[in-house]
Amino acid sequence: MVDPVQRINALQERAAVTKPPALPRWEDWQRSVPNEVVRSALFTVGNRRDRREFLVETELAAIGETQVTYQGVELRQDDEDVWLQALHLAREQPLDAPIEFVPHAFLRAIGWPTTGHYYALLRDAFGRMQRTTVTFRNQRLHKGLSISLIRRFEWSDRDAGGSDDRCKVWIEPEMRLLFGNTQYTRIEWEQRRHLRPLAKWLHGYFASHRTPLPVRVVTLRDACGSDTRELRNFRPKLKAALTELVEACFLSDWQIDETDLVHVCRAPAPGVDACGQTRLI
């Protein structure tokens, strides 16, 4: 008997031969990301003021069956903000075509100031992601998939993005394979934009589960890429981030039990946030 998952993957690959690969569609208030990304330390919770480490063929911590190997400069949550917005723009067209945007509008979309300094930071983020090699291996893919997060990008030589400056970014067409049919997470963008790094990572991870299962503190510490070695020092940071998610109306409750398992309760129903407010869709 043919494995249904293998059959679906074969049909997807066959379809990709006949038409240009494209991302799934999602709403303007959402951003979408493969589950393998938000359940791993690909984008860490490091402070962007700290020096970034260069990793060579390093296996990253991940929750679940996926093995993630990475080479490149350490990526952080600010890089993920940039990548999520690029994917959001790319969903409107085939992946073999570049996305074009005005840096000023892009910066506003990710919640960064629209100054020359942040224009340079945006360009740096694209550069870091272009110079990456990420390999994903899991049962769903039935193979190893090695890609760069950004294939190529072009930008103006001017220090700041003017109203008529346009940048181009190419996303790897193979990125479509990571999204599959249901193997990606839709994130509420406005919630994420106002969170601090650890809360952002937890937001993505818990959003990737309809009903999150209990998970150990040490597992979260490793998978988010925290450099806090002692759990007694990480727990207060984790508690503060979980409280931040309650205040953002993503979680309704959380607790860490006596066995160091983290339990969370998400928003009760689609279209209504954890504070009971109707969400505009």
Results as ranks from 00 to 15, higher is better:
Pro4Thr: 13
Pro4Arg: 14
Val218Ala: 15
Trp189Gln: 10
Ala109His: 10
Gly225Trp: 00
Glu92Ala: 15
Thr219Pro: 06
Trp112His: 09
Val73Gln: 04
Gln191Phe: 10
Trp112Thr: 11
Gly204His: 10
Asn181Cys: 06
Trp112Ile: 06
Leu87Asp: 05
Val169Glu: 03
Ala10Pro: 01
Phe234Asn: 02
Val102Arg: 08
Gly116Tyr: 01
Gly72Thr: 07
Arg186Val: 04
Arg158Ile: 04
Ile256Gln: 02
Leu245Gln: 07
Arg235Asn: 02
Thr259Glu: 10
Arg176Thr: 09
Phe101Trp: 00
Arg210Val: 14
Phe250Gly: 06
Ala160Asp: 11
Pro98Asn: 04
Asp157Cys: 00
Ser32Thr: 07
Gly225Glu: 03
Arg137Met: 09
Val215Pro: 15
Leu149Gln: 02
Ser163Met: 14
Arg193Lys: 08
Glu174Val: 09
Ile187Thr: 07
Tyr119Asn: 06
Glu172Asp: 13
Gly64Met: 05
Asp3Ile: 01
Leu195Gln: 01
Arg229Val: 13
Glu244Tyr: 06
Asp28Lys: 15
Arg137Phe: 03
Thr278His: 15
Pro98Gly: 04
Thr219Cys: 11
Lys237Leu: 10
Glu92Gly: 02
Leu231Lys: 12
Leu89Glu: 10
Leu195Thr: 05
Leu198Met: 02
Asn233His: 03
Gln191Glu: 08
Asp159Glu: 14
Asp159Asn: 09
Val17Arg: 04
Gly162Met: 10
Asn138Ile: 03
Leu195Lys: 05
Val218Ser: 15
Gly127Gln: 09
Lys143Met: 08
Gln6Asp: 08
Arg7Gly: 13
Arg140Val: 05
Pro268Asn: 04
Glu36Lys: 09
Arg14Lys: 15
Leu11Pro: 00
Val262Ala: 03
Pro98Tyr: 14
His203Pro: 00
Met129Ser: 03
Glu74Thr: 10
Ala248Phe: 10
Val33Cys: 14
His209Pro: 15
Ile63Leu: 12
Val246Ser: 07
Leu213Cys: 01
Asn35Gln: 14
Gln71Ile: 03
Leu251Gln: 02
Arg48Ala: 00
Trp112Lys: 10
Gly111Tyr: 03
Ile110Trp: 01
Pro4Gly: 13
Arg192Cys: 03
Tyr205Asn: 01
Gly161His: 05
Leu261Trp: 10
Pro24Ala: 06
Arg158Cys: 06
Asn233Glu: 06
Pro197Arg: 03
Arg279Trp: 11
Leu177Tyr: 11
Val264Tyr: 07
Phe126Gln: 08
Arg123Cys: 05
Pro270Asn: 04
Glu13Thr: 07
Asn9Ile: 13
Val262Asp: 04
Arg232Asp: 12
Thr133Trp: 04
Val2Ser: 13
